[in-house]
Every structure is written in C-alpha cells, then in structure tokens.
Amino acid sequence: MAKSIRGRNEGSISKRPNGKWRAQLSLNGKRISFGSTSKEECQVWLRKMLNNLDRGMDYEGGKTNLKDYLALWLESNQTTLRPKTAYQYAQIIRLHIIPYLGEIILKDLRQSRVEQFYGELLKAGVGTRTIRLTHSVLHRALEKALGYGLILSNPAHGAALPRRNQTEMSVLDESQVSLFLVAAHSSQHEALYHLAVITGMRQAELLGLKWSDLQWISGTLHVRRQVQHVPGQGWSFIEPKTRAGRRAVELGEGSLQALRLHLERQELQKMIMGQRWKENNLIFPSSVGTPLNPSNLRMDFNRVLDHAGIPRVRFHDLRHTAASLMLNHGIPVIVVSKILGHSKPSVTLDIYGHLYHEMQTEAAQIMDRLVTPIEVDLLETASNPIHNIH
C-alpha cells in the first residue's frame, strides 16, 4: 500500500487497496480521516483542516461558537458536496441557524435549545419542509463535531420536529388536468407540461433530458441527468442523486406524438436563430438552445394556469398530481415508485399515502359485496332430501 507520511501534526495521505485515497489527521489523540477517489481532493481537505488549526480552532468545543464551527465545517466539506448542495447548506446556515444559535458555544448547545429553535422558526413563518432541511444540516454538522471530539453527544439527535404539513402539497384533479393541458396548447412548453403530468418527472430532470435519451421505436425515455444552476457558478449537468433516479420511463403514443410536434417546432426555432443557436441536444432548451431558465418557465406556467382558470400551484405539484392520478387509478405502488424514481415503494407511501382516501369508498363497496351473505331458507334446505345427499 503506497503511503505518504508527514511530520507530527501534519497528517498523512495514503492509497488504499481498493484504489481510493485517504487523508488522516490526529487531533487530541483522535484520528480524523477523509476518503476520496482523488489524491488531489485529499490534499485539499488536509490543507483546509491544517489551516483551520492555524486559525485557532481548538477542537475542544470550549471556546468555539456554533457560527465559527459551521463556517469551518462547511469549508472542510466543500469537496464532498455537490455545488448546489453546498450552496443550499450555506444559505440554510446563514438565514436560519446563525441568527438563532450562532453565538452559542458548541459544547453548551443542548437538545432542549435545538427543539426551541425549531419552534422559533415555525413561529417566524418558516415552512415545515425548510425546518426539516435545517435540522438535517445541523444534525450532520454536529455529528461531525461529535466525531472530532468537540462534543460528547449530538444535541440535534432525537430532537422533536414539527409534523409535515400535507397542505403544502397541492394536487390537480382530473378536470383541472384536462383544462390545464388544453390551455397549454398556446405555450411553447406544451410537450414539457404534458410529460410532467404523465410521468411525474422532476423539473430538473425534464430540463436535463436530451434527444439521445429517447428511443422512439420502443417509446422509452431514459432519465440520466439533471440540470443544475448554482448562483455565481452557472449551469451544469449532474447525475441523479440515487440509483433509482436513473431510470427508464415508458411513454404512450400520446406523449410520443407531443414530442414529435415539439421536435418539429424546435427544428424551426434552430433555423430562425441560425448561428445564435447553442446546440446542447436538449429536448426542452431555451429559445437559443441553452438550459431553460426555471424563472422563465415559472412565468409561462403561471400564465397557462391563469388561462385555464386554475388556482396557481407550484410546478413541482405536477409531480404530486401525476402520483395522485396513478395511485387513484389502481396502478401498483411499486410501479408508481419506479416511475417517480423513488428508492423504494415505502418512500412513495410515506409521501402519498394520504391520497388513498379517494379509493376508500370503492374499496368499502367491493368488500361489502364480498362478505354480504346470501339469504337462504335453512329449514327448507334441511327438509329437501336432494341437499342431504353426501
């Protein structure tokens, strides 16, 4: 095993038998390690950690407040997080955690204060989903502090969270879906809306689709990437977060026809734009071929909703609508789960289980028919010799 040994308090970088690299650093008798497929990433991590020590991080939690620790934690994890994730973490820390907990000394933070913090966010009008994301970031950061030996336990572990508010999910009914798709005839994004309602694909997945992902003969559409925009860094294409996110979705003839018409319009748009067209082979690009700006899509989406006379919902609610339609028309949960790209059916049930109430009346009627006894005259049956033959 190849190994690079450094001096005391300088750490080390070694190559493991599986080909991956590992950086290690000893702090207060406790060894901290970082793994990567790249030696360069290990070197960057080690330099950052050593720099943190030079800046006075005592790694005992006695003097370090949460604000300073989170800044160092986020910096140390830059190489392990996706750019958009790192940006979101920084926003959550800046907007939600630091204003309430930033000045608290790390070792003095208690679970009761964390729970009080979540209640304060709720009173301030922060949504339950955002609070849960905030909890996830805080828990992850404190778990690392626990590994560093800065704290004896993670005060965010087991902290009570506000219940999910199902009203945050809006679902269009079948008549509204019909009105929406009719109104979408006037939009250049008609095929995108059609696909969103039919497949429940996420907006980032739809905007990342390329024509090479579509197999016209079999009618199969492969979800292989998402388009991602990070403020200050621009656009990029990333793989789905989970293995289940990489999936093949079967399309019906109606969806394929909508895509054929969309392709014809796109070819015409290319001719109009000429050299100004930036070829990315995207199915749903901007008017010049670059990734479509979600803000522009949102404006058109709201216009279509207004034209259809439907109350405004989020684009993501089309995903919820697709799930609702599939589940309430008897499509098995395991199939819906695969179409939506969930890691397992239990995730689908956890999110959409409450939508099953629409099926309960039909289920009750079916069960009622199954168990309703057939009225017979038992005395007449007993006196009839035909029925007594064995």
Results as ranks from 00 to 15, higher is better:
318 L>E: 01
320 H>Y: 03
352 Y>I: 06
319 R>Q: 06
348 T>E: 10
364 A>K: 14
327 L>E: 03
374 I>L: 15
359 M>N: 10
329 H>K: 01
341 G>I: 06
333 V>T: 14
318 L>P: 00
349 L>T: 05
338 K>D: 11
374 I>N: 13
349 L>H: 06
315 F>A: 02
340 L>W: 04
355 L>E: 01
333 V>G: 10
323 A>N: 00
332 P>F: 04
330 G>S: 07
340 L>I: 01
345 P>Q: 07
368 D>Q: 15
318 L>W: 00
365 Q>A: 11
340 L>A: 06
376 V>L: 13
339 I>M: 08
364 A>Y: 12
368 D>P: 11
360 Q>N: 11
335 V>K: 12
360 Q>T: 12
354 H>T: 02
319 R>K: 05
380 E>D: 15
334 I>E: 13
331 I>Y: 02
358 E>N: 09
324 S>I: 05
353 G>K: 00
356 Y>E: 13
333 V>Q: 10
374 I>V: 15
351 I>L: 11
339 I>K: 02
344 K>E: 14
360 Q>M: 12
365 Q>K: 10
348 T>W: 08
372 T>Q: 08
342 H>T: 09
324 S>G: 05
318 L>H: 00
349 L>E: 06
330 G>F: 07
369 R>T: 15
356 Y>R: 10
335 V>T: 15
334 I>R: 09
361 T>W: 01
369 R>Q: 15
333 V>F: 12
334 I>K: 09
340 L>K: 00
371 V>C: 12
366 I>Q: 15
370 L>W: 13
376 V>D: 09
330 G>Y: 08
321 T>H: 00
361 T>C: 00
315 F>K: 01
339 I>G: 03
367 M>A: 04
345 P>C: 07
358 E>A: 09
342 H>K: 07
328 N>D: 04
331 I>N: 02
360 Q>Y: 12
368 D>C: 13
369 R>P: 11
367 M>S: 07
368 D>F: 13
334 I>A: 11
315 F>H: 03
359 M>F: 03
371 V>G: 13
377 D>F: 13
325 L>T: 02
349 L>R: 08
337 S>H: 06
341 G>T: 09
314 R>C: 00
343 S>H: 09
357 H>P: 06
